[in-house]
Computed example of a mutant assay.
Amino acid sequence: MKFSKFVFSATLLLVSAFMISTAHAATNTVQDVIDETYVQPDYVLGYSLTPDQQTQTLSLLGYDSSKDTQVKTLTTSAYAQIMNVADDASLQLYSSVKIQKLASSETLTVEIVTPENITKVTQDMYRNAAVTLGIEHAKITVAAPIAVTGESALAGIYYSLEENGAKVSDESKALAQEELSALSTINAENQGSQGYDADKLNVALTDIKKAVAEGGDNLTEDQVRKVVEDTLENYGLKDVLSADHITLIVNFALNLSHSSVIKSSGFKETLSSLKDSIVSNAKSTFKDINLNFDASGVIESSKGFFASIWQQIVNLFSQFFG
């Protein structure tokens, strides 16, 4: 009997160690690299910039030649590899970025210093995508000397991270790009539509992503769709967006639920900070809206998933070694 209890206890310890090591493996290496490597801000310039435009863009990004030394160029070949597209010399890359680390107590911020030239992507779309990429606290500055969509700037962020040693998974890159594409498409196609508001969409997405993180990878498509539709309804967007637009969000959320991104220890906390920041800046936009809406309510049972698995393990070994 003592031997049986010893085996039971040892097995539980092994299972515990496995679960802890699995959780540790999901630690956000992207943020670790930013914290440890970005002693100076890192600049990534688009390949298509002329020398004069490079100088202009660096100035817009706040470049200080007396101390800043980390300046890179995103080439078409690097862009093609990052975005998994064909290398085409005709690719036009103008959007440029600066990434600098912040203290862990600060939040993720994005500033577009040339909003008139970034025509399709808003700062909060960049922030939402950056959270999905695994960035928790950093300052990202975006600029372009001519009018461009701004979608390729995300590739500049990937490039900076990877060049500094971060292991950005293809999964994370694909998800962030899918999210940015979905948000920018929905925003562009709903400009001027009665009842539409980009701030509400971005906040709704933080709630959706947080609910997906709560539910984990056992969510069904029906559960994810319910989360999306209930959340959009809470923010007054369900009847504003088209069925195709809602499906774009559902597909992204479902892909996110199956990814390792949601296992990062700081993922939900960063989403909460992002939501608070958008709401604070938008002021009266969220008047009479329930900001405490629980998007995960429809998948409440999923929250106890791992606890349930653990209890089943305990019960199993108790049966054999009781």
Rank of each mutant, 00 (worst) to 15 (best):
residue 258 H to F: 08
residue 113 V to F: 03
residue 164 N to R: 07
residue 190 N to R: 11
residue 67 K to V: 09
residue 42 D to I: 11
residue 69 T to S: 13
residue 297 G to N: 13
residue 97 V to F: 12
residue 300 E to I: 15
residue 29 T to C: 00
residue 122 T to P: 00
residue 186 I to M: 10
residue 91 L to M: 13
residue 116 E to N: 13
residue 229 E to Q: 14
residue 298 V to W: 10
residue 273 S to G: 10
residue 38 Y to H: 02
residue 76 T to I: 10
residue 20 I to R: 10
residue 34 I to W: 00
residue 302 S to D: 10
residue 200 K to C: 02
residue 122 T to A: 05
residue 186 I to N: 08
residue 188 A to W: 09
residue 10 A to K: 15
residue 126 Y to W: 09
residue 174 A to R: 13
residue 260 S to P: 03
residue 112 I to A: 06
residue 13 L to R: 15
residue 67 K to C: 01
residue 167 K to F: 14
residue 60 L to R: 03
residue 43 Y to D: 00
residue 94 Y to C: 00
residue 307 A to Y: 15
residue 91 L to P: 02
residue 281 N to L: 14
residue 212 V to R: 01
residue 35 D to A: 11
residue 44 V to E: 06
residue 275 K to C: 02
residue 108 L to D: 04
residue 45 L to H: 08
residue 81 Q to T: 12
residue 220 T to F: 13
residue 252 F to N: 11
residue 85 V to Y: 07
residue 57 T to Q: 03
residue 77 S to A: 14
residue 49 L to I: 03
residue 105 S to D: 12
residue 161 L to P: 00
residue 102 L to F: 07
residue 38 Y to L: 08
residue 249 I to K: 07
residue 87 D to C: 03
residue 292 N to I: 06
residue 81 Q to L: 07
residue 116 E to P: 01
residue 238 K to I: 04
residue 216 G to V: 08
residue 294 D to Y: 15
residue 318 S to Q: 15
residue 268 K to S: 11
residue 227 V to M: 13
residue 31 Q to L: 05
residue 170 D to L: 07
residue 172 S to Q: 08
residue 157 I to F: 10
residue 302 S to C: 12
residue 201 L to C: 04
residue 231 T to A: 06
residue 132 T to N: 05
residue 141 T to G: 07
residue 139 K to H: 15
residue 119 T to M: 09
residue 255 N to F: 02
residue 276 D to W: 04
residue 249 I to Q: 08
residue 172 S to F: 04
residue 43 Y to C: 00
residue 203 V to N: 05
residue 40 Q to R: 10
residue 270 T to G: 00
residue 272 S to N: 13
residue 268 K to T: 09
residue 227 V to H: 04
residue 167 K to C: 02
residue 295 A to C: 09
residue 82 I to W: 04
residue 242 S to G: 12
residue 26 A to L: 05
residue 12 L to H: 15
residue 104 S to Q: 14
residue 105 S to M: 10
residue 6 F to T: 14
residue 175 L to R: 01
residue 235 Y to W: 01
residue 76 T to P: 00
residue 286 F to M: 11
residue 246 I to M: 09
residue 186 I to R: 05
residue 219 L to A: 09
residue 214 E to K: 11
residue 304 G to D: 15
residue 39 V to C: 01
residue 183 L to Y: 04
residue 69 T to V: 10
residue 109 T to C: 02
residue 57 T to I: 02
residue 105 S to E: 13
residue 76 T to V: 12
residue 100 Q to N: 11
residue 98 K to V: 06
residue 160 S to K: 06
residue 165 G to N: 05
residue 23 A to R: 14
residue 42 D to Y: 03
residue 153 A to M: 09
residue 42 D to L: 07
residue 115 P to E: 11
residue 294 D to L: 07
residue 106 E to K: 15
residue 267 F to R: 04
residue 161 L to C: 05
residue 56 Q to T: 14
residue 293 F to C: 03
residue 224 V to F: 09
residue 116 E to I: 03
residue 46 G to P: 06
residue 316 L to F: 15
